[in-house]
Computed example of a mutant assay.
Amino acid sequence: MFIQNAWYAGAWDYELTADNMMARKILGKGLVFLRTSDNKITVLRDRCSHRFAPLSKGRREGDCVRCMYHGLVFDADGKCVWEPSRKGVSPNTDVQTFPAVEQHRLVWVWMGDADKADPALIPDCHHHSSPEWASVPKYAHFKANYKLVLDNLLDFSHLSYVHENTLGGSKTIADTRPKVEQTDSGVKLTRWYLNEQEFAPYLRGYERFSGPIDRWNIYHLSTLSNHFSMAAGSAPANTGAPEGKIAPDAMVFHSHQLITPEDEHNTHYFWTYGHNFSLEQTELTNGLAERISGGFLEDREMIEAQQKVVDESGDDPMAFILVDNALTLGRRLIDEKIAEEASA
């Protein structure tokens, strides 16, 4: 089950050109994304109204799509504008469209009631287009339910083990009890690891200072759009980072991760890991993206293996431990919203 009335990340801007089509399933529905000649994004249900052949198997003809099964043509608004062998078109041949907005390098699609599609509800991902930050847009596909991916993000204690040689590098992470808060839109966690003796493995070779480190992860999950926004960094120890004093040579990052359900068994993962220092060093930007990507591949391997065991386990209950507080809260908020929509 999914929250319907929400904006979901559907594509990166570079995935759509003025002459291609891109098929992607979201919340169990096949969609086809198009960029029109006037640079607008349109999202159609990926099925011809006639015999339900996928429109993504069709052909772009200007800003229209021709179904290559029986030849019907649909414009960017989903209206059937041509039908072979007759003047005009038959009734009930239009294709469903979905509200879509391109903002901060992401294409957002609204899967629920179109009348409720308020662009003001789109998550703030301004770091993607800000000249003060540098990042590389990335995508991954997980063969697992989206809630297992969210569980992973809401419990960073796994960094000490899954990512021992990549994103973690310290047992302090698992031993640190985070501050967990419920917000108006989701769950916020705050983690500080003070006086660490080494940089995390993914930063080694990029260090801007030497000596002990104060390290942080402050992150928020908006459960409406499954938007994970994280401020992270490493600063020289005892220079005031926990009080908001960021030293000039600190390494400050901001990550956005968008978890979009494909269906009950698969998940789209859009992400960036931006930095606000050494912006001219593209080697650093690309290197960070590759190292973070390697860490996320470790997550994917674990979560996909977990999904297989979950599928085999039926209704067997999972044990609850202390670090599950945040993920339990996140799941409760999602389930409450799903129930609210169902009752409405």
Rank of each mutant, 00 (worst) to 15 (best):
F2K: 05
F2Y: 15
I3F: 09
W7C: 02
G10N: 02
W12I: 00
L16A: 07
T17F: 07
T17R: 13
M21R: 05
M22K: 15
I26T: 05
L27C: 15
G28M: 14
K29H: 13
G30D: 15
G30T: 03
G30Q: 14
G30Y: 00
T36P: 12
D38V: 02
V43Q: 02
L44N: 00
C48R: 08
H50V: 02
A53D: 03
S56C: 09
K57H: 11
R60Q: 06
D63L: 09
R66V: 13
R66N: 04
M68P: 00
V73C: 04
G78Q: 06
E83K: 14
N92H: 13
T93C: 13
T93E: 06
T93Y: 00
Q96V: 12
A100S: 15
V101Y: 06
V109K: 13
G112S: 01
D113Y: 01
D113T: 07
A114V: 05
L121I: 10
S130Y: 01
W133T: 02
W133I: 11
W133P: 09
Y139S: 07
N152W: 04
N152A: 06
L153K: 00
L153Q: 09
L154R: 03
L154N: 02
S157T: 10
S160K: 04
V162L: 11
H163T: 08
E164G: 02
N165D: 14
N165L: 11
G168F: 15
I173S: 07
T176L: 13
P178I: 12
V180S: 08
D184I: 03
S185R: 13
G186P: 08
K188C: 14
K188M: 08
Y193N: 14
Q197M: 07
E198V: 00
P201K: 08
Y202P: 09
L203P: 03
G205I: 13
Y206K: 14
F209L: 01
G211F: 02
I213V: 15
I213D: 09
N217Q: 15
S222N: 15
H227F: 10
M230A: 14
M230S: 07
A235W: 03
A235P: 05
A235H: 09
P236A: 08
G240K: 06
E243Q: 12
E243W: 02
G244Q: 05
M251S: 08
V252S: 07
S255F: 12
S255M: 11
E262P: 06
E264R: 14
N266D: 14
N266S: 14
G274Y: 06
L279F: 04
E280A: 00
L284Y: 11
T285M: 11
T285C: 03
E290R: 15
G295E: 03
L297K: 14
E301M: 03
M302W: 10
I303K: 04
A305H: 06
G314Q: 04
F320M: 08
V323F: 01
A326D: 13
A326Q: 07
G330H: 11
L333A: 01
D335K: 12
E341F: 10
S343P: 00
